[in-house]
Design a protein around this nucleic acid. Structure first.
Length: 518
DNA sequence: CATGAGGAACTCA
DNA sequence: TGAGTTCCTCATG
């Protein structure tokens, strides 16, 4: 994994702590590049000094404990009698490589100049949220977080894609995260963190703090190896101990809040909707130019020739298509568009606007503190949770162009939009085939759940039927959705000529019919 | 037995 | 009314 962890950085090198005062912040960042962004840092968002986040604990030399202790306590806490993941005794005191994680391959925008510089500071992926707070290109890392928060973790092994069991409650029994097995020798910070958490816990106890992406980042030990730094008992302050799980929230909140404000500003400046689906071609061009400038990418003179789509059609384009058109900046633009799509989709319907924002506060609280539906590991309560706190933004399909599309211009969808506004009208009306394409369009996020087999032929495979079904159910606010029902809907598409089984019928493999395969 | 296919009734916007 | 959703039976490997 390419991401390095600020967790292992000496406190003196920690680039950001919510405890930092503005002058501290500036003093610890390259002044010429980042100090100018400090003005954009909303200090009101910072946690109070009495409730610091875990990043500050590096200053303490807490006694080390053996990994078995934390692991045991973790197991107890998780109360997973069937948890299959154990640390071989031979590895318990060794540096264990971080687990392979399907989301490790993130789009290239992370290599934008500023972010690369941050990487040099040892921030890496986690630092992205920091980056997002302080650079003019704020959101790329935020979207990594955002996307991670937005999706469900992979189904447990039992939901094996090869053996989906639509009618069973497959995937609803065993929940254990292999990530947890990779924690090495630890520093017991529990007593310290318990103090901290007493306050933050109060305000964050209603959130769902699973943040698997951040957990993964924080648990990566490669950085420690390289710099011979003391590791931390990550599990002691993220994820594992319920008492302190909320401590990471302020970091995410900061990152997302900043991204929100950035997007607000852009919407206001460009007079465009927060919903990319509502953009006219001219607005698309304005947004593209703005984003290119934002990321200090080379301007594209004939942008109109490269992108003649409106926002809805733009949202349907794959990253590959972006890169094909703009090799240098396509990936960044696509990733940034994903941010906008997800951010807008995450808004409650009543807060979604097709028109340019009238104020700078149109982004909902759910964006700053997303409605984390990361309780996949607690499936016994999953449905309840979904009903309780995921009534979620009936998500407006971000690429929910109606089927009235034609692919007459070399694969570029021209979308018939009677009102020129958002598709779906109601904000939650997304077709299943659109949703599937949406998942397929983000392989770095959903690649473990669904992937293209043959993109040109529109053949794809549902790798994790349980997960896809859950995602679909969440999108449609149908907690009882399962693959049996989802596949029934897919089969309805056979008659409609939207999808078909492949010539050589394979399980969980479907094919989009033309022109739905774009 | 798991999965796919499809009929039929139903909900919902 | 269209697009699923839910429940069901039956076929297949």
């Amino acid at each position: 994994m390419e991401y390095e962890k600020m967790l292992y950085m000496p406190a003196s090198e920690m680039p950001l702590s919510p405890q930092l005062k503005p002058h501290q912040f500036q003093a610890q960042t390259p002044p010429d590049q980042y100090s100018s962004y400090a003005d954009n840092f909303d200090l009101s968002l910072l946690p109070q000094e009495s409730a610091p986040i875990p990043t500050t604990v590096f200053q303490y030399n807490a006694p080390q404990i053996k990994v078995e202790c934390a692991w045991d306590s973790q197991q107890q806490l998780q109360q997973q009698p069937t948890a299959p993941y154990t640390i071989p005794s031979s590895q318990q005191h060794q540096l264990i490589p971080p687990p392979a994680y399907p989301h490790s391959a993130y789009p290239s925008p992370q290599s934008s100049p500023l972010q690369s510089e941050f990487a040099a500071y040892g921030l890496g992926r986690f630092g992205g949220s920091y980056d997002s707070l302080n650079s003019p290109s704020p959101s790329l890392e935020a979207v990594s977080i955002k996307q991670e928060l937005h999706i469900l973790p992979p189904s447990p092994p039992e939901s094996n894609c090869e053996t989906p069991s639509p009618r069973s409650s497959c995937g609803e029994s065993i929940k254990a995260e292999p990530l947890d097995a990779d924690i090495e020798s630890l520093i017991d910070l529990n007593s310290l963190l318990q103090q901290q958490s007493l306050q933050s816990q109060q305000s964050l106890q209603d959130t769902k703090p699973d943040h698997q992406l951040l957990r993964e980042c924080l648990e990566d030990t490669s950085f420690q190896k390289r710099h011979n730094l003391k590791p931390l008992a990550l599990e002691s302050f993220i994820g594992g101990l319920a008492a302190v799980r909320g401590d990471i929230e302020p970091v995410i909140s900061l990152a997302l809040e900043h991204a929100k404000r950035e997007a607000d500003a852009i919407c206001a400046e460009l007079q465009i909707s927060q919903d990319p689906n509502g953009w006219s071609p001219a607005q698309v061009h304005a947004w593209l130019r703005s984003t290119l400038a934002q990321f200090r990418l080379p301007p594209v003179a004939d942008l109109e020739l490269h992108f003649c789509e409106n926002g809805a059609a733009l949202a349907l384009l794959s990253e590959e298509e972006f890169v094909r058109r703009l090799p240098e900046s396509g990936s960044t633009l696509h990733a940034q568009l994903e941010i906008w799509k997800m951010a807008y989709a995450d808004q409650p319907a009543h807060q979604q606007h097709s028109q340019p924002p009238a104020s700078t506060d149109l982004w909902p609280a759910s964006y700053a503190m997303p409605n984390l539906d990361l309780d996949y590991n607690e499936d016994s309560e999953d449905d309840d949770d979904m009903e309780a706190d995921a009534p979620v933004a009936p998500l407006n399909g971000s690429s929910t162009s109606p089927p009235a599309t034609t692919a007459s211009n070399g694969g570029t969808a021209t979308v018939k939009r009677p009102n020129g506004g958002r598709t779906g009208g109601g904000g939650s009306h997304i077709h299943l085939w659109q949703f599937l394409k949406e998942l397929l369009a983000s392989p770095q996020v959903n690649g473990t759940a669904i992937r293209w087999i043959d993109r040109s032929k529109g053949i794809f495979k549902i790798e994790d039927s349980v997960r896809v079904a859950k995602l679909w159910g969440r999108r449609k606010n149908r907690p009882a959705m399962n693959y049996d029902k989802l596949s029934r809907s897919i089969r309805q598409y056979y008659k409609k000529g939207i999808m078909k089984k492949t010539e050589r019928s394979q399980r969980l493999v479907y094919q989009f019919c033309h022109p739905y395969n774009q």
